[in-house]
């Protein structure tokens, strides 16, 4: 037994190590997602019998004006969320100074990161409230009337994204502070000897060293943008009249309130496909240097 183990442990040990995590992940996450894709080919009210409809759900999606709105909003989310990494980096550069009390201030900057999205959503509804909100107070101090952002079909998504950016920027800030903590003094010194400062220094010396951190920041930002469900649910419920709905929320709404689980699953699948494009690019970029390094 023990010789068997010794002869084979080079592959058995890693297999044993990876099994629990991989199995659990496969059963709960992968299988569940696959099931949802399967459901998207059925007409199903979530309770009774499923009826095979082939691609009918997808065909309906194409004609659904709400779907187009959701899709557009998802793109707005993704695009605007891309502000989080640069803003986080800017804040990190600001805070990366050996000044007394800086540690405490850094911690305070992180706080939005740990708040529940229910909390963030509630707070920002107060900010935007057209009668007693912070925004209307500011506008009225200039003698102007604040726009009711959450009631305006053109602005509402932007307003929700701004709220969602608050914790997201904090997240990126944390990551970049960690990255700045670990820059190579040698390279910076060499850069300074060469007379690099300001932008050229940042772009040619610092950013390349922050590549890995930026990568993680990008990943959590995209995840954040696509997990936009909570903020939409808390702040607008997708309204007014569906104009701030995103795919994740529409899927939820269709499944839960309209009993259209097959249709909801089709929306989820579309979201998944969009995601898959990003995942493929991400993994490709992430794994490339390692493959080349071998």
């Amino acid at each position: 037994m023990s010789t068997f183990w010794r002869n084979h442990r080079h592959w058995m040990a890693p297999t044993l190590f990876i099994m629990p995590g991989a199995l659990l992940f496969a059963v709960v996450i992968i299988l569940a997602s696959a099931q949802t894709i399967w459901v998207s080919f059925f007409d199903w009210d979530g309770v009774g019998a499923k009826q095979w409809v082939g691609l009918a759900n997808y065909a309906q999606l194409l004609d659904d004006p709400q779907f187009h709105v959701s899709l557009k909003n998802n793109l707005i989310w993704l695009a605007m969320f891309m502000l989080a990494p640069p803003l986080g980096l800017a804040l990190a550069l600001l805070l990366n100074q050996p000044i007394r009390g800086m540690r405490v201030m850094k911690s305070l900057f992180f706080v939005p990161l740990v708040l529940a999205s229910v909390t963030v959503g509630v707070v920002f509804t107060w900010v935007y409230d057209p009668t007693f909100g912070l925004l209307s107070l500011i506008f009225s101090s200039f003698g102007a009337t604040a726009p009711a952002l959450l009631s305006d079909e053109h602005f509402v998504t932007f307003a929700v994204v701004v709220a969602a950016l608050w914790p997201q920027v904090a997240f990126c800030l944390v990551l970049f502070l960690a990255g700045l903590n670990n820059l190579s003094e040698d390279l910076i010194g060499a850069g300074r000897v060469d007379g690099a400062r300001g932008w050229p220094m940042l772009i040619h010396v610092i950013l390349p060293q922050l590549r890995e951190v930026s990568f993680i920041a990008l990943a959590v930002t995209v995840i954040g943008a696509l997990r936009s469900f909570d903020m939409v649910a808390v702040m607008t419920s997708g309204g007014p009249f569906g104009s701030s709905t995103v795919l994740a929320y529409q899927m939820y709404e269709q499944s839960i309130f309209s009993y259209r689980f097959g249709y909801g699953a089709a929306i989820a699948t579309v979201l998944f496909v969009i995601m898959a494009v990003f995942i493929a690019w991400y993994l490709h970029t992430l794994l490339k240097p390692e493959r080349e390094g071998v």
Partner: peptide, 26 residues
């Protein structure tokens, strides 16, 4: 290995709602 890693990372990008019903049933 790469595929397995890809699945771990990919699953992480999924919106939670996609798994709602199957996970509940599980």
């Amino acid at each position: 290995a790469s595929l397995m890693f890809a699945l771990f990372v990919g699953g992480n990008f999924l919106p939670a709602q996609i798994m709602m019903i199957p996970v509940r049933d599980l």
